[in-house]
């Protein structure tokens, strides 16, 4: 991690000195339109600089849960605070939170009609109102950091999946978020491209970024996570350090899950 890279993530340097909660979710409940009870009272606090990995079988509500953090999904009961801002129906609060929370999706969701560079600079220019020159300078540094500098003027359709996902990470970082959410970032990738994306995420975690990661990558969870959380059937089953989670699981549900994936 070089000096400039550390500087880029603001407020990241003092991680671990104070434990300021960045995300506080209390008893979050969500019903989908068809009355499916997706989240049945989930509580989780993510502290500043912490990396939380959420695991769980598909349909357990883990994606739905992290998507409530930036209001991509609504919730009907409970309370969520992100960086001290109450996440409610107030559009102003939502806009404020979305500026501070970056998200990386399973399907990359790059804008196919724009070059890689424009993908990264679009939000800083239009949402943060940065001058174009500044946005491009930051974008080029981020693209260099994720190793895609040479592809800056190509279109997303011309890149491999791994490259696209690294661009998506750079795009989210360009807004200089305080929190990064990863929704199964490697699940849509060919196996040989998973490593390059995880490496970028690893260096991001080491730089002190607050991260919530939904993933099935056990290696990543062991190596990087401060806490690993298991969700099943819309409930939070167990939260523990990776060491305890993988070696001394307390709940039967966790043991069953681990026996299926390990």
């Amino acid at each position: 991690m070089t000096q400039s890279q550390t500087e880029m993530i603001q407020d990241a340097g003092d991680a671990g000195i104070e434990t300021r909660p960045m995300i506080v979710a209390q008893d979050v409940q969500k019903w989908y339109d068809n009355h499916f009870h997706a989240l049945r009272g989930v509580s989780l606090t993510v502290n500043k600089g912490e990396v939380v990995v959420i695991m769980g079988p598909s349909g357990s509500g883990k994606s739905t849960f992290i998507r409530t953090f930036n209001a991509l999904e609504s919730y009907q009961k409970g309370r969520i605070e992100v960086d001290g801002i109450h996440l409610c129906h107030d559009l102003k609060n939502i806009a404020e939170i979305r500026r501070e929370v970056g998200m990386v999706f399973q399907q990359f969701n790059l804008f196919p009609h724009l070059t890689v560079l424009k993908n990264v600079t679009l939000a800083p220019i239009w949402v943060r109102r940065w001058p174009k020159a500044k946005a491009e300078e930051v974008a080029m540094r981020l693209l260099e950091r994720v190793g895609i500098l040479e592809q800056a003027h190509k279109y997303p359709g011309q890149l491999s999946g791994g490259q696209q996902q690294r661009v998506a990470i750079a795009r989210a970082l360009a807004m200089q978020p305080k929190i990064m959410l990863f929704d199964e970032p490697t699940s849509a990738l060919d196996p040989e491209m998973v490593r390059e994306v995880l490496d970028v995420m690893l260096s991001l975690a080491r730089s002190g970024m607050t991260m919530v990661v939904v993933t099935h990558e056990v290696g990543f969870a062991r190596e990087v996570a401060d806490r690993v959380v298991l969700m099943a059937d819309g409930l939070l089953v167990e939260a523990a350090t990776p060491e305890d989670f993988f070696n001394r699981p307390q709940e039967d549900r966790t043991k069953k899950f681990l026996s299926q994936i390990l």
Partner: peptide
């Protein structure tokens, strides 16, 4: 795809910007 709206929302674009910069051109 819905993902385009979600990505734009997650980056903080409001509805008019999302439509004008991302959805309508495509």
């Amino acid at each position: 795809p819905r993902g385009q709206w979600e990505a734009a929302n997650a980056l903080g674009f409001n509805a008019p910007l999302t439509v004008g910069l991302i959805v309508l051109p495509q």
